[in-house]
Nucleic acid binder design. Structure first.
Lengths: 106, 106
DNA sequence: CAGTCTATTCGCAATATTGCGAAAGAGCAA
DNA sequence: TTGCTCTTTCGCAATATTGCGAATAGACTG
């Protein structure tokens, strides 16, 4: 029968537990949801700053308004780098990606 | 600025030369290709900094080594936010996305 | 040399994202 | 009210990304 927590000095195993098993997936989803929300908001802001309607921006990047609307929905979870870049390019910007260290309090 | 070949120990510069020289097809989407390349490199760096093998990182995010290898390929064009976040989370980081204005001068 | 660990490439199925039209809601002005 | 513009939601097909094993190559050690 399996031990609840088998002894290990395998750093990978330990980190895996910490990341996926020991923790409710809720936290990760929360952070992700927040991030998605911010992306949606950012797209909205960029479009507004450029004084474009959803239809206009859609045409700029070669898609339709419903797609833009979906991207600006705070609950949308399907953001992709490809799409963000298309929008950025249309608005004369580039997508900068950084891996920022997280401070895990206690 | 001079674009003539000069001695360099800048890894990005070296990789850039190796990737683009003699491949005019790339010049079209140069910026995007370069961005993908930097992402690949960044993943490699993060993994190395964490002292992980591809297999170990793969297990951390619940996939296989071949997937990690693909992500670290400078020619890979399929980078997604979802995957970047999984990697970031495993390495105790978060993905920060910014739309930065493009300076086309000079 | 064999053995081990790591990295890379390939092919295809499974899943996720995008494309797109149609319909309807919201707001505003005449 | 009607008309107009913009936005939002829905469903499904088309495309893109991921999962994953197997095979290969490279580096290193004894």
């Amino acid at each position: 029968m399996a031990k609840a927590l088998k002894p290990t000095n395998d750093a990978v195993e330990i980190l895996h537990r910490r990341t996926y098993e020991g923790r409710p997936a809720r936290m990760k989803n929360l952070e992700e949801a927040r991030a998605n929300e911010q992306i949606a908001l950012k797209i909205q802001e960029l479009r507004a700053a450029a004084a474009l309607t959803q239809t206009q921006l859609a045409k700029l990047i070669g898609t339709t308004a419903s797609v833009i609307c979906r991207l600006e929905d705070a609950d949308y979870e399907g953001h992709s780098l490809a799409m963000l870049r298309r929008i950025a390019a249309a608005l004369n910007r580039r997508v900068e990606i950084r891996f920022v260290p997280i401070r895990r309090s206690a």
